[in-house]
Nucleic acid binder design. Structure first.
Length: 592
RNA sequence: GCAUCUGUAGCUCAGCUGGAUAGAGCACUGGCUUCCGAAGCCAGGUGUCGCAGGUUCGAAUCCUGUCAGGUGCACCA
């Protein structure tokens, strides 16, 4: 089904063409003056220059051409050359009925592509902290949007599981439990299946080891050696590494589940290791990489650059792999396994240079096809109320778990103030609302910008917040439930299209138009990888619903046809909101 | 130093592929509940869109310069 704006544009393009102008001038946008019209076309002013004619004259010709078209209730030219369009209500209601009949509510999906979303970026053996929030939240939303658009999307957490932290943990463990068989060089038997530590021990071991390495040079050196040994396949350390992985992954999975973030792949840097030797060999033999100051590098400078870009280092002068090495090797693996049409990486915006280097190297070496899209979403920092990077009162990094708990508790308090639901349900609801508050708070900002995380603001949930959206949805659910209880009927989408013309209130028309903008909004947000556009949209839609709600008594409406249409309308609105919050990565309770 | 991002109401943010009177929320003020959830709705004031030039019929939006802040500039991830 065609979207409303498309259908209008089609008429206008036809009119422009028939009047002897290029059709591209028939572009239509939502009006920026809702007091004057619903949609507008500024093409006459753009065309004026090319055809050396007064814009208003062109606009008048178009208006004349479209006169009598039943689609429009009002269609007029206004100085200096705007074409103002107001639709016939019957046309809008019919469009809504068409939208409701489709599974994806009118979104056109296009040819499915394989998309890899690389987000999360957790480090094994280190707890998730607030710095991991944005990647998880934005990445999850981007993944869901791309999937909704009909693509085959693979979300990969891409763990940091191969770095120095492993050596640190191994050596710290040696100091604490030297009797373990992993540290007995003469041991030749099987290594135990049971991990020699629990998650809480592991959580304590890493920070301790990290701190020690900063003061104790010898320890640091041991950790480096252990890391090298692990990376070269030492059986004892490999066995330990597997334990660390298993224990840590279970915990990470739990934490991401709590965030309603779900990965399709739990790959990590270690998975790319087997590809590295051949890749280095290949880059060298084809002369793409060369030695510079002891390191192996690839030039990535291009003529169009406004600055001098340093080459991409693919092997350090000590022979070890580096960030870029493993990212490139990961691309090789992904090409082999999935042949993606698009890569989307999420990382802090400070890593932009790194991704430029990796992308260019991958293209230069021909590891990805020229037409493969490679996108990097660099996101800003989450700041505290002081405008500086978010810290605990003690100045440390706050664990994600605790942040979730804080918000959940604040929400719980708030729920208790208003309503008396039983404690168990209140806790469940608080969890849902808290997550919505956090995610909406994050996603409603442009990803690239820094933003201020203010627990009090989110916990008070007034205005443009996740809880406000949820509140609106709960309200609709409540009305629909009462309607069913009273009448025994459920919403009937066929009632959306009015059989005969009747008077519509302004707020009703507003709500209809807002609902009709769904498909355009989603397509654009998915294309631009911009979840904040969805937030903006559902806020407008919620406002439109709440205004409508206050102006019209739905359940008390005596005209049965009108009531059926209203019920169908609000249930469509609820459906739209449900899809949207799902794309943002949270859910609505039935009551709150 | 070079590059890059940001600068919009008291605060937090939209708007930026050029269009009409620059929008929300918070905060502040006043109204709205015999009736569908008042976590709501309605009404009210707030702006040198950092500054200065330029392009254009038209600029918060594009270009140049400039100021302020953030960030990045080869062997960390």
């Amino acid at each position: 089904m065609k979207k409303i704006a498309e259908q209008i544009a089609e008429e206008l393009k036809k009119a422009f063409a028939e009047c002897g102008y290029e059709e591209r001038f028939g572009m239509v946008t939502v009006s920026n003056r809702p007091d004057l019209c619903q949609y507008q076309c500024n093409g006459a002013m753009a065309a004026a220059k090319q055809y050396k004619k007064a814009p208003i004259m062109i606009a008048n010709e178009i208006v004349e051409k479209c006169a009598g078209n039943p689609m429009f209730a009002k269609f007029e030219a206004v100085m200096p050359g705007f074409i103002n369009i107001t639709l016939a209500n019957r046309f809008v209601s019919k469009a809504l009925a068409g939208m409701a009949a489709e599974e994806k509510l009118g979104v056109s999906t296009g040819k499915p592509q394989t998309v890899i979303v690389d987000y999360g970026g957790a480090n094994v053996a280190k707890p998730l902290h607030v710095g991991h929030l944005r990647s998880a939240v934005i990445g999850e939303s981007v993944k869901r949007m791309k999937r909704f658009m009909g693509n085959k999307v693979i979300g990969d957490v891409h763990l940091g599981d191969w770095g120095l932290q492993m050596g640190l943990i191994i050596e710290e463990l040696r100091d604490r439990k030297p009797e373990l068989v992993y540290f007995d060089e003469n041991y030749t038997g099987e290594y135990p299946a049971e991990a020699p530590f629990t998650i809480s021990e592991l959580e304590e071991i890493y920070p301790a080891a990290s701190a020690k390495s900063k003061e104790d040079e010898a320890f640091k050196e041991r950790a480096h050696r252990a890391t090298v040994l692990l990376q070269s396949g030492n059986p004892a350390f490999t066995a330990l590494w597997k334990h660390i992985m298993a224990v840590s992954l279970a915990d990470l999975r739990k934490n991401y589940d709590n965030l309603n973030v779900h990965f399709d792949l739990w790959k990590g840097e270690s998975d790319a290791q087997p590809y590295i030797p051949d890749m280095i060999e290949d880059l060298c033999s084809r002369g793409i990489a060369y030695e510079s100051q002891g390191a192996l590098v690839v030039d990535i400078a291009q003529e169009s650059d406004t600055k001098e870009l340093p080459p991409c280092i693919v092997r350090k002068s000590d022979g070890a792999a580096i960030y870029a090495t493993s990212d490139l090797a990961t691309i090789l693996e992904r090409e082999k396994l999935y042949q993606p049409d698009q890569y989307i990486y999420l990382a802090d915006k400070r890593q932009e240079l790194h991704f430029t280097q990796v992308f260019r190297t991958a293209r230069k070496a021909g590891y990805v096809k020229p037409e493969t899209r490679m996108d990097y979403i660099g996101f800003g920092t989450m700041n505290g109320k002081d405008g500086k990077p978010f810290k605990t009162r003690q100045g440390g990094v706050l664990r994600l778990e605790y942040l979730l708990k804080d918000v959940e508790d604040a929400v719980f308090e708030r729920i208790q103030e208003n309503r008396t639901v039983d404690e168990d349900e209140a806790h469940k609801t608080a969890k849902m609302i808290g997550l919505a508050a956090i995610k909406y708070g994050d996603l409603s900002n442009q990803a690239a910008k820094d933003y201020v995380f203010d627990v009090d603001r989110f916990a008070s949930f007034e205005g443009n917040t996740g809880p406000y959206i949820l509140y609106t949805m709960v309200r609709i659910k409540s009305i629909l439930a009462k309607y069913q209880e009273q009448s025994g009927k459920t919403a009937d989408t066929s009632a959306l299209a009015a059989e005969e013309d009747r008077a519509y209130s302004a707020s009703e028309v507003e709500l209809m138009l807002a609902a009709a903008r769904f498909a355009d909004t989603i397509e654009r947000a998915a294309d631009e990888l911009a979840p904040h556009k969805i937030c903006q949209y559902i806020y407008e839609l919620s406002n439109a619903f709440n205004s409508f709600y206050h102006e019209n008594k739905i359940l008390a409406q005596e005209d049965a046809a009108k009531q059926a249409q209203w019920i169908a309308l609000i249930s469509l609105v609820l459906r739209v909101l449900n899809v949207c919050i799902d794309l943002l990565g949270f859910e609505a309770p039935d009551r709150m």
